[in-house]
């Protein structure tokens, strides 16, 4: 069984994963942003499904979710969107959402419908690796990847178990706190190195990265970086001025991709 996320094992480059909320500023724009992200060469797209109570998110992504909720976006809508973009896009796409949405949809149906639509995996910030066995087993059976998060506060013992259960990649949370761009990053790269040693799959780091320079720094220690709030900030800033948004989004991605490539070259 092939999963598009397996492409992330490619070690010849540092991967860039971009997060955006489905339906912010509107559904049509999300679709166009996905085309543009795919074309620009990001390694994977993390698509948020809005939830009324996003405890792990900072203000930027909270606001983005509120805009999407105002547009009445549901899981079904986002599945439909992925089906549609799959006609043109082969970039891995994962959902990021809170567990109540999955539970309410029905865990079995959720996995089946994701696979059918071409969603490759899911990140659920409030679901520990050792809860909801049925959801876990069904995902494994269907080749659908659950990406678990490791926090700098985790014990080594628990980290190892999370890494063992994770599929596609391991999501390392760079900072104690919620999502949101930070001016300064103070991260435990030693723990990150330990995680990479334990993991057979790539380890990507996210939460708080806001500039290409920070991204390049983190990329020295991880297999890839995940950018969320900083990118969502662009969407918030340009909103429904669609042309300009696409332009600025392109510029933003290029800046990050460039430093990342440079980083690889320096290493070689």
């Amino acid at each position: 069984m092939n999963n598009r996320l397996d492409s992330l094992k490619d070690k010849s480059k540092k991967h860039l994963v971009i997060y955006l909320m489905a339906g912010d500023p509107d559904f049509k724009t999300t679709e166009e942003l996905i085309y543009s992200l795919a074309k620009s060469g990001v390694s994977a797209i993390e698509l948020g499904v809005p939830f009324s109570d996003p405890v792990a998110d900072g203000p930027t992504i909270q606001r983005s979710g509120e805009r999407a909720l105002a547009n009445k976006i549901t899981i079904k809508d986002v599945l439909g969107l992925v089906s549609k973009v799959r006609e043109k896009v082969s970039t891995p796409i994962v959902f990021m959402l809170y567990y109540n949405l999955i539970y309410s949809y029905g865990t079995g149906n959720f996995v089946d419908d994701c696979v059918k639509a071409g969603v490759d995996g899911v990140i659920v910030p409030d679901l520990p690796y050792d809860e909801e066995k049925e959801f876990y087993n069904h995902s494994i059976n269907k080749g659908f990847y659950i990406i678990y998060l490791v926090s700098p506060t985790n014990t080594t013992d628990r980290m190892k178990k999370i890494v063992e259960k994770s599929r596609g990649f391991v999501y390392y949370i760079l900072l104690k706190g919620v999502t949101g761009a930070q001016k300064k990053l103070s991260s435990d790269f030693e723990f990150l190195a330990k995680i990479r040693k334990c993991s057979k799959i790539p380890v990507f780091a996210g939460f708080g990265i806001s500039t290409p320079a920070q991204s390049a720094e983190v990329a020295k220690h991880a297999d890839g970086v995940i950018i969320g709030s900083a990118y969502v900030g662009i969407i918030e800033q340009y909103g429904s001025k669609k042309k300009q948004l696409l332009l600025e989004s392109g510029k933003f991605i290029n800046k990050f991709l460039k430093t990342q490539t440079k980083n690889i070259k320096e290493k070689q």
Binding site: Y99, D126, P128, L149, S151, T153, N154, G177
Partner: peptide, 12 residues
Amino acid sequence: GGKFAPETLRTL
């Protein structure tokens, strides 16, 4: 019941 907590809170 359970402990549906983000990992950062887990150790705590």
